[in-house]
Design a protein around this nucleic acid. Structure first.
Length: 276
DNA sequence: AAGGCAGCCTGTAAGC
DNA sequence: TGCTTACAGGCTGCCT
């Protein structure tokens, strides 16, 4: 299986790695190799971006923050990769754009499916992106009350609920499958059917799975790679995604919800009767 | 208003 | 063998 999906833990790992590579460097130029990859709708002058002050994550977005007023937002979507090369290497077939720094070094954005985007924005542009994002799941703001209120406000199934970036920012298909399995909750359950004990379990598992995955530097089942091309190791902890049997030996069922594959154990997660 | 879903894109794998 | 088709999925924008 070759999939890729940088979700919150993968993006967090990339951001941490990127901090080590590019903070303090001054942008010289941005080169677009495939039209549409770089968006600069405000025509912000690249040579005025200045020195990289920090690299931050919000949901699955990466923000490269400069000492000036502008910043770069990057979304890797499914197959996007950021590779920092101290020396200018040969460009791959799927190189979409790159940033060259005055001090030397090049940050390459490589993306097979060309869904990813790099956008040069200002502070209001960042606000516009963040306005569409829900809570950071590892922050203190994401607590029992937040989750309970959000669940009861919606009327959809648990799988779609957890994938909704406006509610919780950063979860993708793999981790949602894992979280629901570890919570022993059926993905087709309607959000309003959850009891308080179940909400507490769900909250705990969301945080636990993300923390563990970050400790593992993400999941590489996948062509996800870190900035230095190293792999993460969370795939060793996957219990349900892409599996044919669960850890109890039951057959795993695979269904589609809103066009996305859901893996679940109909025995361990046997509560699908709560669908209303 | 809010939820559902096609479309974007291309490599991989299965089926004939 | 080689062609066709399905699948992988985050997000936007359209439809209901």
């Amino acid at each position: 299986m070759r999939l890729s999906m940088p979700e919150l833990p993968e993006v967090e790992t990339i951001v941490r790695d990127l901090c080590e590579c590019i903070v303090g460097l001054r942008v010289k130029a941005i080169s677009e190799l495939r039209k549409g990859t770089v968006i600069n709708s405000n025509d912000i002058a690249v040579e005025r971006l200045g020195v990289v002050k920090s690299v931050e994550r919000r949901g699955k977005y990466i923000f490269i923050v400069f000492d000036g007023e502008s910043l770069i937002s990057i979304h890797l979507r499914m197959t996007g990769k950021l590779i920092f090369a101290p020396f200018s290497d040969e460009l791959s077939k799927y190189a979409r754009c790159f940033i060259d720094f005055e001090e030397g070094g090049r940050l390459l954005f490589d993306d097979v499916r060309a869904f990813g985007k790099l956008e040069i924005i200002d502070a209001p542009g960042r606000q516009k992106i963040e306005a569409k994002l829900g809570v950071e799941p590892l922050s203190n703001s994401f607590d029992f009350e937040y989750l309970k209120r959000a669940l009861y406000k919606k009327r959809t199934n648990l799988k779609n609920f957890l994938l909704d970036q406006k509610v919780i920012a950063g979860l993708g298909n793999i981790y949602v499958n894992e979280i629901l399995f570890r919570s022993k909750l059926n993905p087709v359950r309607i959000t309003t059917s959850l009891e308080e004990t179940e909400i507490y379990i769900l909250l705990t598992e969301i945080k636990e799975v993300l923390k563990l995955a970050i400790e593992c530097n993400g999941t590489s089942i996948s062509d996800y790679r870190r900035v230095d091309d190293k792999k993460g190791s969370f795939q060793n902890f996957l219990k349900i995604y892409g599996k044919s049997v669960c850890d109890k030996g039951h057959n795993v069922e695979k269904i589609r919800q809103n066009g996305r594959s859901t893996y679940f154990c109909p025995i361990c997660q046997a509560n699908s009767h709560y669908t209303r």
